[in-house]
Design a protein around this nucleic acid. Sequence first.
DNA 1: ATTGACATTTGCCATTTGGCGAATTAGAAT
DNA 2: ATTCTAATTCGCCAAATGGCAAATGTCAAT
Lengths: 131, 131
Amino acid sequence: MPRVNNDLGRIIKQQRITIPLTLQELAATSSVSSSHLGRIERGERFPSAHILRRIAKPLGFDEDELFTLAGFLSPQTSGVAEEKSATYGNRRLDPYVAKVLAEESIEIQRAVIGILNTIKLVAKGMSKGNE
Amino acid sequence: MPRVNNDLGRIIKQQRITIPLTLQELAATSSVSSSHLGRIERGERFPSAHILRRIAKPLGFDEDELFTLAGFLSPQTSGVAEEKSATYGNRRLDPYVAKVLAEESIEIQRAVIGILNTIKLVAKGMSKGNE
DNA sequence: ATTGACATTTGCCATTTGGCGAATTAGAAT
DNA sequence: ATTCTAATTCGCCAAATGGCAAATGTCAAT
């Protein structure tokens, strides 16, 4: 049995105990077998993202909260869920561009992206030839 | 060869091509083997959270963004481009399209629209000649 | 102490993940 | 077409995941 330093398991168990729930009850509400849950709590198994997602709400965690605790998300990323209006990453999508594109079907929209990619590919080839 | 509906793989590949990167280059910067990355892209494997996390930044995704796309987080939890694009007129702007385009400068975005208009003009002329 | 009812842990196994190296395919440059 | 090179896919394998059922542990109430 991997003797790794196990924070996640202790946190999960702590939360389960304080609710309080038994492993079987948590298993019932989360659709994860109690044996697997037990092994996760004592650090013998590491939960996949699917499993984490299933047990988050029954334990009263926000999804991103558990993911952060599991080390899947870095702390700063989560808990924001705000502003987000038109910014993707740092850049913005020009409102006029958005409006015009939105009038096309999804297929056309995707095709446009395809064309853009092709152009960039060609451009790359040209710059490669220059070096 | 699971014939599952594979959005994630296509999105990842699309993003990789757009950057552009080869599988091997992405493998180098993400520390995930190229063969595994390839299988993920064509839906033969499903990436674990660890893998997803490793490839997020090299691909220019926010961590929670990729997790949401993978179905590990529900859309509302994270700050991803999701139906935040709402409706322009009656139609919607595909979130993925919006995201890709937003990574380009405003000039490029406008140029893309220009190309689209040109194509539509050409198409119109062709159909006119047929009638 | 013994029984009974639950809760937890363990043994075992099927399935999946992910890496390495070989084979195949795709692109360039003759 | 041919050859050379880089990129992708395939075959195989070790390790990990997660479920089921049996074993073990815990704790009341006899």
